[in-house]
Structure formats: C-alpha cells, structure tokens
Design a protein around this nucleic acid. Sequence first.
RNA 1: GUCCCCUUCGUCUAGAGGCCUAGGACUCCAGGUUUUCAUCCUGGCAACGGGGGUUCGAAACCCCCAGGGGACGCCA
Length: 492
Amino acid sequence: MVRTRVAPSPTGDPHVGTAYMALFSYCYAKQHGGQFILRIEDTDTARSTAKSEQIIIDSLHWLGLQWDEGPDCGGQKGPYRQSERLPVYRKYAEQLLTDGHAFHCFCSAERLQQMRSEQRQAGQTARYDGLCAGLSEQQVAERNKAGDDFVIRMKVPSEGICTVQDTLRGSIEIEYAQIDMQVLVKADGFPTYHLAVVVDDHLMEISHIIRGEEWINSAPKHQLLYDYFGWQMPELIHMPLLRNPDKSKLSKRKNPTSISFYKDMGYLPEALLNYLGMLGWSMPGGEERFSLAEMIDQFDINRISLGAPVFDVTKLKWLNGRWLREVLDEEGFAARLSDWAYNRDKLKQIIPLVKERVDVFSDLGKMISFFVEGMPDINPEDFEYKGASSDQQVRVLQFSLWLMESDLDWDSQALQQALVGLAERMDIRIRDFLKPLFIAISGKPVSPPLFDSLVVLGPEISRGRLRHALGILGGVSKKKLKKLDAEFRSLS
RNA sequence: GUCCCCUUCGUCUAGAGGCCUAGGACUCCAGGUUUUCAUCCUGGCAACGGGGGUUCGAAACCCCCAGGGGACGCCA
C-alpha cells in the first residue's frame, strides 16, 4: 500500500513549496490507489500557532487537495498533530537511551557555539564533539538529580560511510563524520523534527517520503534512527527546490510565496496547482494545461527533472488566463468571479466604509476598485508632497511592512494601535505617516479608512502592496535595509 | 570553510547513444484577423557550462573542472 504525507509546520503563511510537495505526494499516492496524509509538525512550541494550522488546511483544501487522514478528519493512525503525540516520542527516546543509541547532553548553548565556531575555523564541518556521550550512568544521574537542563542526542559513528537511497538520484554517500549527533529531545521535552518524523512516518506506515531537496543532508540521521529501531526506511524522493528569479531558494522577501496571496490576487486554484505541476515535471504528451485528475492519470515519478525551477509569475499568469478563457464558461466564470470579488461577506465588510461617502451607487466604482485590484498602478511622483522626504516615506513603508509581517492580529483595532504607535515612536505626525500608506494600499492619497481597508484586503495583499510601493520608490538596498533594521529595532 | 545536490534558449521544459541542422511553451520582436484593446493565427530572436575520455556515432554514458543551489540550530 502506497501511503504518502505532507508534513508542514504551522509557523506562518502556508508556502507554495508546501503545496508543491503536497501535490506530488498526492499524485503519487492516488496514482497507486494509495492514501495521502496530512500531519502537522508543531514541535516548535515557540513558533507554532493554531491559526497557521487552520490556514494551511484551508489553503490546501482551496487548491483541491484532499487527504485521507489528518488532524481535521482523523484516521486510524492518529493523532496527526505531533504536539499530541508526546508520550509516543518519549517512549521511543527512552528505548534509544536504553539501547545505548542516544545519550543525555548537558552542554550549554555557549559551549556549543564556541565548539562550532572553532570547528568551522579549523575547516571542519560543525558537529557535536561527543563530550556528554562519555558521561557515566552515575554522572548522568547526579546531574539529573541536581535538576540540570538536558537534551537527548543520538549517537552517530565517527567513522564509516552512510549510504541512503534516493529514488531519483540513486545512492547518496555521506561520511558519518559529517553527520551531527542530532538533538532528538529538546530541553522542554518536545522531540525535534528528526525524532518525530522517523517515529511518525513509521507508525503511520508511510511508504514514500516526498520532500524537498533541503532534507538530503538529514537523510543519514533518519536512516540511522530507522536502523536503531530496526525499522524499514520508506522510499525517499527528494524534489528540487523552488527558486526565486535570482536562483536562491524561494522566499517571501523576493517573491510572493504564500498560497493565500495567489488566492487573494484572483488566481484559480486549478491554475496554481497546474503551474506547480509543470515545475520539475511535464506531461508525457507535452500538454501544459492539465487538471489534477489528468496529472494523477499520467503521473510518472521518473519524469521529474532535478534542476531546481524558478517560480515564474509571468508564466503562472498566462496559464491562469488559459484556464479562465478555455475552461470556464460564462456561468462558471460568473460564479468564480462573484465568489472572489464581491461576495456578500466581502460587500458587508466594505459597505460600512463607503456608505457615508456615496450619494448614488455610481460613486462607488472608483472608490472601491482598489479592493479588487492587484498591485495599484502607482509611480514615484504619486508620493511627492510637501512635509515628507522620500527617505522618510521609505522608512514609514518599510517599518510598517515589518510590523505587518510580525504576528499581530489582523483586525482594525490592532492594526491601528500598531501603526499609530509606530508613528508616535518615529515622531511623525499621523497625517504625514499615513499618507504613503494610503497611496501604497489604495493607489490614491484619499480612500476609505485605511485600517478597515487593510482588514478587507487581508495580510497578503496588504504586505504585497507595501513591497510593491517600496519597489516603485526605488527599492531598498541590502545595506540600507540593515541600517533600517537597526533603527526599527531601537524603536520597538 | 566543510559536506551534499544540480547544470539544454532569459524562464518552464522535451530529449533514455544515431529520428537533433536540438522540439514545444512563457517572455520579447515583426506581421495577420479584430472598430480599439485583449484573444486568436503566422513568423522571428534565443540553449546542450568548459575540458578530457568511452563509441563508428554523444545533449544523452564516465572522469575532471567551473558555475549555481542547499545543508551544517534544543527551526522544520
């Protein structure tokens, strides 16, 4: 039985990369009549949020991906949220300890940091030096009794070669000396990814792991854990990484990466999924427009090409256009459009903002068009007015963007509090402070109330417009960014 | 720095030793259809990273180099 999974961590906006892995995992499973599972990897207590988990689920559903087992729909091998599986990890960590495959480590962060920098300076790979692996049972007992913080690390041989199999790449050999004695259980008792992923994939009977190339270097650790437990390692399939136009790993600084962004911009889920499907993979017949069902039907893991593809928004846009005009009839188009743009819920949000400002409906068009536009058509001159230098406006926009990227509640009051507070700390009059924001967000110096508009637009589009405006104003150099960052920190 | 992965037009890709004078698509340019624009159609620009092998024959197989990317966390 083929069983695949996608295992995102709920820390922020769901990434198109997550959708990419989900798509390929889904196709592979369904093509073989198998199951596809969603597992939430929330072992990072500091960064995981329930809100993020919900958006991930909604986003994947929006794309049309359905899982057979998951935290929202249950299943035989649950729970599917790692934070609810703590006793399971504890049990297996104990087993490794008992079998001598893991050890307590009491090293301080300072010592580890120093050790790593020394190793790096000496031209070596940073790797735990094994200090605590040599502690006697008695020493460990004493330190535990004293209540010292500890983590549990896995033992890794210092010599020899670890070979892992990758379906697409064949054998990959990495020397054990290159592999860190990974922490398996953190000081807070939570497992790290490495322990949890191995235990869960085994217990959930995952047969094929489809994940990003960034995990190749961790595969030997996982292989070793499977060996320690006496389990069979699932088949590994490492996908290429999606990239920015400058070839670096796809990141939101350089490209919109959140699934919600594309939804809010008015892309069709079918088109986004279709586009992801043609990155690193192609239909045998060369068709470029294909549905999820067609992709499953024709799917062949061996047709995956290994060169990391650039996520090209221009081509995505073209593909979306094809779906719009070739697949949707007028009825379908109308349904999708009204659902996206002026559905009742959205109108109800907008009406309070404009009701007092109109005399006839025909006043409305220009006033609310920015709610359904992508990036406003603005140029540097739009930002020229007396009382604020362009430099100050860049600072206002950048600082506001950073504020909006932080984990704040996306409601009118919280936004107002945050932004007005920022204006005060920057010692800029609210009026002058908000002006560039109005232009960036609505494209005009006057518009319906800003904070409420931000709520209607949602975080993705709002942030996107601030980035867009910064770009229009000439962009911010790396050096400048660093300077601004320091200034921003000193303000907050 | 160390290790790992990758390498066909600017971008996404086809290519499983002779069908390759390297095909398709996006972008861009030119022309046509259309009251405008868009769509649509026709055409054009544009690539096998470099060097060695193996072979009668290499974009494809092997080796070296270079370039790009990733990983080196009590993040995933």
